[in-house]
Computed example of a mutant assay.
Amino acid sequence: MTDISGAAPWCAVDLAPGQARAWLLQGEAVLARASLDTVPDAPDSGDVAALVARLGTPAVEAPTVISGLTGAAAPVPVPAKPGQITPVRIGPHTHALPGLCQSSPPALMRGEELRIAGFLALNPNWDGVICLPGAVTHWAQVSAEEVVSFQSFLTGAMAEALTTTPLLHAALSGVDWDGDAFAEALDTAMSRPERLAAGLAGIHAEATLGTLSGGAARARLFGGLTGAELAAARPYWLGQQVALIGPDIPARPYAEALARQGVPVTRTDADRMTLAGFNDARRRISAT
C-alpha cells in the first residue's frame, strides 16, 4: 500500500484542459503550490515532473495523485459516482484518476470529475446540476452522488479563439464589461441561436466603424456564445438547482445568464472543490 497518510507529504497534480497546477500537501494542509506558465493541449508525464519539481525537493519523492492525465487511465462510463472511482496506480508512488465518458451524446470529462467529487464530499446528499465552465464546459446531472449524464460544450475554447482572430482581436481587447450589452446578446442568442454568426459579424463591423466600445464588444461576444449554449443545455438547467464550479472569470457569464433565467445558483470556490476532490481520492488510495 502506498503511504499517503496524513503525516506524509504528498502531491496533487491537476491537468484539466487549459490549466496545469500542483500542490504539495501534508494531510489536507497546503505546503506549496505551482503552475505552468504555458499549458499544452495535452499535458503529459513530462509536465507532471516539471510541476512537481517546482514544488521543491520534498515533493520529488512524495506520493502523487494526478487528475486529467491523458491516456493514464481509461475513463469510466456514466452513470458513475466520482467519489467512488478507484484511482489507478501508474507508478511506484503515483496514481491517476480516471475521467468520465458518455457514448450518447459523445462526451469526455477529463479532470472536472475531480471537482464534482470534491463538491459532493463537501455537500452530501446534494442533487441537481453542476456546471463547470472552462475551455470545455460541462453540465452534469447529479442524483444520489452519481453523475447520471452530462453534456459538454467548447464555448470557452471558441471564445478564446475568437478573441485572437484578426477580425475581432482589436475589438475584444481589454477587460471592460457592459452588463446591458451582455444581457441583450444573451437574450437574442437564447431565442434565435441561428443568428449567432451574424451577431459576431456585427461586432466586427461596429467596432471597425468606431461605434462599439471594447467592453460592449466583449460582453456581446460572451452573451452570444453563452446564450447559444444555454439554449442547447436547457434540459439540464431548467427547473433545477445549479452549482457553478469554476474560476471567477469563466464563471461570470454563466452566473449572470442563469440569474436572468431565475435559476437558483450555488457559487463555489473552484480551488477548494479541487483540493476536496484530491483529499477524497487520497483517502480511497490509503484504504486499498
Rank of each mutant, 00 (worst) to 15 (best):
D3F: 05
A7R: 14
A7K: 15
C11F: 04
D14A: 03
R21P: 08
W23Q: 02
E28I: 04
L31M: 13
L31S: 07
A32R: 13
V39S: 07
D44F: 09
S45Y: 03
A50C: 06
A53S: 14
A53L: 12
A53H: 10
L55I: 02
T57K: 13
T57F: 05
A59I: 02
A59P: 06
A59K: 08
V60F: 02
E61P: 00
V65C: 13
I66V: 15
G71A: 03
A72D: 08
A73R: 07
A73D: 09
A74E: 15
P77T: 08
P79D: 14
P79S: 12
I85K: 10
R89C: 10
H93D: 15
A96V: 10
P98I: 04
G99P: 02
C101K: 12
P105Q: 03
P106H: 08
L108V: 07
E112H: 06
A117F: 03
N123M: 03
N125R: 11
L132W: 01
G134T: 07
V136H: 08
T137Q: 05
A140H: 01
Q141H: 11
S143A: 14
E145G: 03
V148Q: 15
Q151H: 05
S152K: 04
T155A: 12
M158F: 14
M158C: 13
E160P: 04
A161C: 10
P166S: 09
L167D: 07
H169L: 05
H169C: 12
A171S: 08
S173K: 15
G174P: 07
V175K: 06
D176Y: 01
G179N: 14
G179L: 02
A181I: 11
E184Q: 15
A189K: 00
M190G: 09
R195K: 14
R195G: 09
A198V: 07
R220H: 01
L221Y: 09
G223A: 10
T226N: 06
T226C: 15
A231T: 12
A231G: 02
A232V: 04
A233F: 06
G239L: 09
Q240G: 00
V242N: 00
A243C: 08
G246Q: 01
I249D: 10
P250H: 10
P250C: 08
A255Y: 06
E256T: 10
L258K: 07
Q261A: 06
P264I: 06
A270Q: 07
D271V: 07
D271T: 11
D271M: 12
T274K: 10
G277P: 04
D280T: 07
A281C: 06
R283F: 01
T288Y: 07
